[in-house]
């Protein structure tokens, strides 16, 4: 950090004269902490991003839970239970980090989620309809989430978020490896298993690709403030370059008539992405949005007496 961008310190907390000084601090690799007098625009944007991440971890757990009772084996049931527990644990950590930003408490965030007022990742608006979908989530979605979260962890300027991401990224990496092992069983299994995964791939390929979002805006503040370290389109392209040949190598067909290898560019190219399905999920209009949110909301209401007994209801439950 240079002398010109050193923030003034009051009682051990940082504050900045203006946004320019704050951004110079970020550019020099500075780390923002919850007690710092961060610019309000940074607080709101980073909070919104972390809340979205927390919501997605929780709703991801709810997406995966449906097939845990049907896991084909006791050890597999333990493994998928542990994996889903990780996702719920990530939500727990992230809600605490978000609550510490002083924008909303945890209870308010959860109630906004269960009333459809806040958002979560597009992929968790879809239903796992077979066991192969559970594996598609583990293989395709966890890999996309891992790539996305690792890119946030890389330079993350908000200290508490970076610290919990260290654990989250490590666990997601483990989930990704688990997904690869599960995929191998389907790819090298019986014709029935191979066909099951092909059908799951047909359902999950595009939502997984869309998870990275449309191209980043040229002036995306989350890139400028080093919450994100890579542009959406770059992460998406790296994912396509890795997973198209891998899936084809396992004799699966990418559900895209236009997918091809461009010799001149030396890379895989997919058809133009239809973003309407992703936009629909952001309006809570995905294929399984209503059931997912309604079930979660009903359960939240049914268990209110427990939170009340623990004096958590309405208390902000940090």
């Amino acid at each position: 950090m240079t002398a010109t961008t050193m923030p003034a310190t009051v009682s051990g907390l940082n504050h900045w004269a203006g946004l320019d000084e704050f951004e110079a601090f970020i550019d020099d690799g500075g780390m923002v902490e919850p007690g710092d007098a961060m610019p309000e625009v940074y607080r709101q944007e980073v909070f919104r991003f972390i809340e979205f991440h927390a919501n997605s971890e929780l709703m991801g757990g709810l997406t995966e839970r449906d097939w845990i009772p049907k896991a084909p084996g006791l050890r597999l049931k333990q493994i998928f239970l542990a994996k889903t527990q990780d996702e719920i644990g990530h939500a727990h950590l992230l809600y605490m980090v978000a609550a510490d930003m002083g924008v909303k408490g945890r209870t308010e965030m959860l109630e906004d989620l269960f009333s459809g007022r806040s958002r979560f990742h597009n992929v968790f608006h879809y239903q796992a309809v077979t066991w192969a979908d559970q594996i598609a989530i583990a293989y395709l979605v966890d890999a996309a989430a891992f790539a996305s979260q690792r890119a946030v962890f890389a330079q993350c300027s908000y200290g508490p978020y970076k610290r919990v991401l260290k654990r989250i990224v490590a666990e997601e990496g483990f989930h990704m490896r688990h997904g690869e092992e599960m995929l191998l069983r389907m790819a090298e299994g019986t014709p029935v298993q191979h066909q099951m995964f092909q059908e799951a791939l047909n359902r999950w390929w595009w939502p997984a690709v869309q998870l990275f979002g449309p191209d980043s805006a040229p002036d995306d503040p989350l890139l400028r403030w080093k919450i994100k370290s890579e542009r959406n389109e770059d992460l998406r392209d790296a994912y396509i370059q890795k997973y198209v040949p891998l899936l084809q190598g396992y004799r699966f067909q990418i559900p895209d008539d236009g997918v091809h290898f461009n010799e001149e560019a030396g890379k895989w190219v997919v058809s133009e992405i239809d973003w309407e399905p992703l936009k629909a999920t952001m309006r809570q209009g995905g294929p399984d949005s209503k059931r997912r949110i309604t079930n979660a909301a009903n359960n939240w209401a049914d268990t209110a007496w427990v939170r009340s007994a623990f004096n958590l209801e309405g208390a902000g439950a940090p």
Binding site: G61, R65, P69, L74, T84, G89, H92, T303, F310, L312
Partner: peptide, 24 residues
């Protein structure tokens, strides 16, 4: 196991899930 994700609050969700894993 059927309670995962549906515990009354997140800490209890995690605890009850650990108990389920232990019993299995």
């Amino acid at each position: 196991t059927t309670w995962i994700g549906l515990g009354p609050f997140l800490e209890e969700d995690l605890a009850f899930c650990s108990i389920a894993q232990d019993e299995l």
